[in-house]
Computed example of a mutant assay.
Amino acid sequence: MWLAVSRSVLFRWWMPNRVRITVLRAFGASIGAGALIRHDVTIHWPWKLEVGENSWIGERAWILNLERVTIGSNSCVSQDVLLCTGSHDRSSPTFEFDNGPIVIGDRVWVAARATVLRGVRIGDGATIAATTLVSQDVSPGDTVFPARPAMGAACG
């Protein structure tokens, strides 16, 4: 039922935010007052999503929440961000799942096109720069930038 509702009308540009929030809550999401979830957002399982007060999720963000995703209050998940709680154990002969929750603190900015992988905790007041891949915890107040190639590395 969720897939039909979310893909048919819920995240269209013309759907008011208050309707999106109401429907997400009806499907089990916990969403604080003043939250804004823009159009074209993909949320895999709303019952595994918690968004704090006055937080914002931008267009085309993809929340692949096979495990719980928690976004604190007054935080911004910008356009085209991927929050991915799923992975696989490459050493497993059957490629078993290796999933983990994502926790984003209060007053965090995850800038455009960043990717946050499973099991990551981002501390309060942190900033994740645009296009950054986050695969380990980020301390409160830290700013994380994309990895830069080593000096002298060849461009392909």
Score class of each variant (00 low, 15 high):
126 A>M: 07
30 S>F: 00
111 A>S: 15
64 L>S: 14
5 V>R: 11
41 V>Q: 04
124 D>R: 11
96 E>V: 10
80 D>R: 10
67 E>G: 09
22 T>S: 15
2 W>R: 10
78 S>M: 02
34 G>L: 10
144 V>A: 11
155 C>W: 07
24 L>G: 03
54 N>C: 13
87 S>P: 02
124 D>Y: 05
7 R>V: 11
131 T>R: 13
43 I>P: 00
61 A>L: 05
42 T>I: 12
34 G>Q: 04
12 R>V: 14
125 G>K: 06
118 R>L: 00
69 V>W: 00
139 S>H: 13
46 P>S: 12
122 I>D: 02
76 C>E: 09
120 V>M: 01
153 A>F: 09
9 V>N: 03
20 R>H: 11
134 V>E: 00
155 C>K: 15
90 R>Q: 08
69 V>Y: 00
84 C>F: 05
134 V>L: 07
88 H>G: 13
31 I>T: 04
38 R>Y: 03
140 P>I: 13
137 D>I: 08
44 H>W: 09
137 D>N: 15
30 S>Y: 04
143 T>V: 14
113 R>Y: 10
29 A>L: 06
140 P>N: 09
34 G>S: 02
33 A>I: 06
20 R>W: 07
124 D>K: 14
26 A>R: 14
143 T>C: 13
73 S>H: 10
79 Q>W: 07
44 H>M: 13
46 P>H: 00
130 A>F: 03
8 S>I: 14
74 N>A: 12
45 W>H: 15
37 I>F: 03
46 P>T: 04
84 C>E: 03
149 P>V: 07
17 N>M: 09
59 E>K: 13
151 M>W: 09
6 S>L: 15
110 V>A: 01
150 A>W: 07
130 A>W: 01
76 C>G: 11
116 V>A: 04
129 A>L: 08
21 I>R: 12
21 I>L: 15
31 I>L: 08
68 R>E: 06
13 W>S: 15
65 N>V: 12
105 G>R: 02
104 I>H: 04
37 I>T: 06
93 P>F: 13
93 P>G: 13
92 S>I: 09
126 A>V: 05
14 W>D: 15
11 F>I: 10
52 G>K: 03
99 N>K: 08
50 E>P: 00
126 A>H: 02
19 V>N: 09
42 T>G: 12
132 T>P: 08
42 T>K: 14
40 D>G: 05
45 W>Q: 09
109 W>S: 05
72 G>M: 00
129 A>M: 12
142 D>H: 12
134 V>H: 02
8 S>Y: 11
87 S>Q: 02
95 F>T: 01
129 A>R: 07
122 I>H: 01
7 R>Y: 13
107 R>D: 15
108 V>I: 12
155 C>S: 15
91 S>C: 11
95 F>P: 01
24 L>I: 00
48 K>W: 07
134 V>W: 02
95 F>D: 11
107 R>M: 11
80 D>Q: 09
141 G>D: 14
117 L>S: 07
86 G>C: 07
75 S>L: 02
141 G>T: 05
58 G>Y: 05
25 R>N: 07
40 D>C: 03
111 A>D: 15
110 V>P: 00
58 G>T: 02
45 W>V: 10
61 A>R: 00
34 G>F: 03
96 E>D: 14
135 S>T: 13
67 E>H: 02
99 N>L: 06
118 R>G: 10
68 R>L: 12
67 E>D: 13
51 V>Q: 05
152 G>C: 04
118 R>I: 05
129 A>H: 02
